[in-house]
C-alpha cells in the first residue's frame, strides 16, 4: 500500500461532495474486495479513498410501488443471499450465494461487482439480462440508466468521475415467465469461464415476447445474443421441446464468439461451453416450472 487519504462519509450528499472535491484520482470503496487487493500489491495508488460502508441507504433492500426491487449499491452478496425474495428475484440470491468464496461474499457488494465491471463475476450478466436500472448520483443530482448502457463496450463502466452508483432497480418478481442462470468455472471459487442468463417475458397468450440471452466472460462487457434470442419470440414456453435447441445454441455461440476468432484454446473452450450452457438454459426454460 502507498499512503492515501481515507474518508468515511455518513451520508450520500457528503460522499458526492468528497468525490467532486478530490477529483478523478479518487477511488470509491464499498466492500473493498477488489480495491484492497490492488492497494496491497501497489497496483492501485489512489491519493484518496472514499468508503461507502457507513451510508445506510446504500445497503438497504426495498420494493417500489410497482413491485420493482431496489437494492442499495453497497448491499453485500451475503445480504442478498439471505434475503427472502420471491419469483425470479430468487435467482439474485442464488447468483450472489454462488460467487467467489464466503469471505468475499460477506464483504463484497453488488454495486462493487457492477462497478468493477468484470463480466466473469456474474453480476454484469445478471444486470443486463434482467434489464436492471442503475441509479446514479452525483453532486449534480440523481439519474438512472439501463444496465446495458452502464457497461462500456471497451470495458469498465460509463460512470463519470463524480458519479456514485447508488442503487440497482430490478424489475418486479413476476415480470419474467422464465429466468435461468448458469456458469462454468474451473474451481468453485474461480471466476466463470463463461456465465449466461436467459430472461424470458411472455404475453397474455403465453407467447414469448422477449428472450434476452446474455453471456459474461466473452468480451469486456456482457455479450447479448440478440438474434438467437429473437428466434424464441412468438413461441410458447411449453413448445420449447420442438425447437432446434442445439442449432439455436450454436447460433448464440457464433453470434457472441465467432468461431473464426476462436483461435486460442481458451476461446475454443468458451465457444463449446456457450453451446453446452445455452442448451441447458433453453431446455430448463422449456421444462415445466422453468
Amino acid at each position: 500500500m502507498t499512503p492515501f487519504t481515507y474518508f468515511q462519509p455518513a451520508g450520500l450528499e457528503e460522499a458526492f461532495s468528497l468525490v467532486a472535491e478530490h477529483g478523478p484520482g479518487t477511488r470509491l470503496m464499498a466492500g473493498g474486495q477488489s480495491l484492497l487487493l490492488a492497494l496491497k500489491e501497489r497496483l492501485a495508488r489512489p491519493p484518496t479513498v472514499v468508503s461507502l460502508s457507513r451510508i445506510p441507504e446504500l445497503s438497504a433492500i426495498s420494493y417500489a410501488e410497482d413491485g420493482s426491487l431496489e437494492v442499495g449499491a453497497a448491499t453485500t452478496y451475503a445480504q442478498l443471499q439471505k434475503a427472502a425474495f420471491t419469483g425470479w428475484h430468487r435467482h439474485i440470491s442464488a447468483i450472489a450465494g454462488n460467487l467467489a468464496d464466503r469471505s468475499v461474499r460477506s464483504m463484497g457488494t453488488i454495486g462493487g461487482g457492477a462497478c468493477q465491471a468484470d463480466p466473469r463475476y456474474d453480476v454484469p450478466t445478471l444486470l443486463v439480462a434482467s434489464a436492471a436500472r442503475m441509479v446514479i448520483g452525483s453532486i449534480d443530482g440523481m439519474r438512472s440508466i439501463d444496465a446495458a448502457a452502464f457497461f462500456s463496450p471497451a470495458g469498465g463502466t460509463t460512470l463519470g468521475p463524480r458519479d456514485i452508483l447508488c442503487r440497482i432497480v430490478f424489475p418486479p418478481a413476476g415480470v419474467f415467465a422464465s429466468f435461468g442462470f448458469d456458469k462454468f468455472r474451473f474451481r468453485v471459487f474461480d471466476a466463470a469461464v463463461v456465465n449466461a442468463a436467459l430472461a424470458v417475458t411472455t404475453d397474455e397468450a403465453g407467447r414469448i415476447t422477449i428472450a434476452r440471452l446474455v453471456f459474461g466472460g466473452i468480451a469486456a462487457c456482457p455479450s447479448v445474443a440478440g438474434a438467437a434470442g429473437a428466434r424464441l419470440c412468438g413461441v410458447q414456453l411449453n413448445e420449447f421441446a420442438s425447437l432446434p435447441v442445439a442449432d439455436i445454441a450454436a447460433q448464440a455461440s457464433e453470434e457472441v464468439l465467432p468461431i473464426a476468432t476462436a483461435t486460442t484454446r481458451h476461446r475454443q473452450f468458451q465457444s463449446e461451453l456457450i453451446k453446452t450452457i445455452t442448451t441447458g438454459l433453453l431446455t430448463q426454460a422449456g421444462a415445466p416450472g422453468g
Partner: peptide
C-alpha cells in the same frame, strides 16, 4: 488434464 483440454479433445 484440464476441462478445456478435455472438452476440445472430445470434440
Amino acid at each position: 488434464i484440464t476441462a478445456d483440454r478435455m472438452l476440445l479433445a472430445l470434440r
